[in-house]
């Protein structure tokens, strides 16, 4: 069941299936390791509601909800 990374709740995992959006942002996300097939976990949401903290490839990455909304995942 495809979902958007932005909609994961803290503690939930997902496997990336596709990164959409403008080429420059997409390439930047890919270079940071958000390639398809990668396991991501939503760690937390910042106190003011944005950005998000993700766990990916063993490290912590912060992205805005708008960027996470370009990443499609499937449940793991």
């Amino acid at each position: 069941m495809p979902r958007l990374l932005a909609n994961l709740s803290p503690g939930e995992n997902g496997r990336i299936t596709h990164v959409a959006g403008e080429a420059d942002v997409r390439h930047q996300l890919l270079e940071m390791g958000l390639t398809s097939g990668t396991l991501v976990r939503m760690v937390r949401v910042a106190p003011l509601g944005d950005p998000l903290e993700l766990h990916v490839r063993g490290y912590r990455l912060s992205v805005r909800k708008s960027e996470a909304a370009m990443v499609t995942i499937e449940g793991d």
Binding site: L29, M32, R60, L61, S62
Partner: peptide
């Protein structure tokens, strides 16, 4: 310009 991005590592 295009919507600015916020893609930042949170280091240990």
């Amino acid at each position: 310009g295009p919507r600015p991005t916020f893609i930042m590592e949170l280091p240990p």
